[in-house]
Design a protein around this nucleic acid. Structure first.
Length: 233
DNA sequence: GCGACAG
DNA sequence: ATCTTGTCGC
């Protein structure tokens, strides 16, 4: 009857990624990025989405701004959102980016002085099938420097799980044997991205992302307690 | 059928 | 993403 929607959608998304890919800036563009101790860097952002179990449509979109180098929370924004795009590996950005941008726009409108100088994103940047992961997507559309940090290895062509990959991956904190995968999102070099990630880690996951994750989960816990425990009135 | 599959 | 508490180890 009708054309397979998923296939057409993916083609359209691939074209969009190819178009935006050209706008990624893979080098350092900010003065603080050149500084050995990142002097001049005062605010780092983190974004994440958390879901209610068994519901892949309603989620809490979280933006958090931390001070640097103290990593104290300066700003937090939790917003329930309704996702429209499905999750397809390689196209995560089309599912999440709109709501992360909205959060940044709310910040821009309400507390522009707190806008982050760099944003940590839960997912990959250039380390992506088409070199355009979520961190690049958010970076290009927001214009902000972004760093991608993934907790799991995406098996991009040419990259395999091995001793090599283990040695390339970043052991972010002393205590974590399991690595994280850092890649360039936008307006930052890989070297700086790795250095900055290390500098923002108290635990395995960089503090901005970890805080965004904790706060969005807490929001769901408070506003949707036991959302599927079969509690009826 | 098998393996991969960021979040 | 989520299902999931306590537990073993440094």
């Amino acid at each position: 009857m009708s054309a397979p929607p998923a296939e057409d959608l993916v083609r359209q998304w691939e074209r969009e990624q190819a178009r935006l890919r050209q706008q990624v800036v893979e080098e350092d563009t900010e003065d603080w990025q050149r500084s050995p101790d990142f002097s001049g860097l005062e605010r780092v952002g983190g974004v994440d989405l958390s879901f209610i179990k068994g519901d892949d449509v309603n989620a809490c979109a979280q933006l958090v701004i931390l001070s640097y180098p103290d990593l104290e929370v300066l700003y937090e924004d939790s917003q329930m959102v309704t996702l429209t795009a499905p999750y397809i590996a390689g196209f995560l950005a089309f599912r999440e980016t709109p709501f992360l941008l909205e959060a940044l726009e709310r910040l821009q409108e309400n507390q522009p002085t707190l806008l982050p100088q760099v944003v940590f994103v839960d997912g990959n940047g250039l380390f992506h099938y088409r070199e355009f992961g979520l961190a690049c997507h958010l970076g290009v559309l927001s214009g902000l420097p972004c760093v991608g940090v993934a907790k799991n290895l995406l098996q991009v062509q040419g990259v395999y799980k091995s001793e090599e990959h283990q040695s390339q991956a970043l052991r972010s904190s002393d205590r974590s044997s399991k690595p994280v995968y850092v890649s360039v999102g936008h307006k930052i070099s890989l070297d700086t991205a790795v250095r900055l990630t290390h500098s923002c880690c108290r635990y395995r996951v960089p503090e901005p992302i970890r805080q965004a994750d904790c706060l969005s989960r807490e929001y769901l816990r408070i506003h949707f307690p036991a959302a599927d425990t079969g509690i009826k009135e």
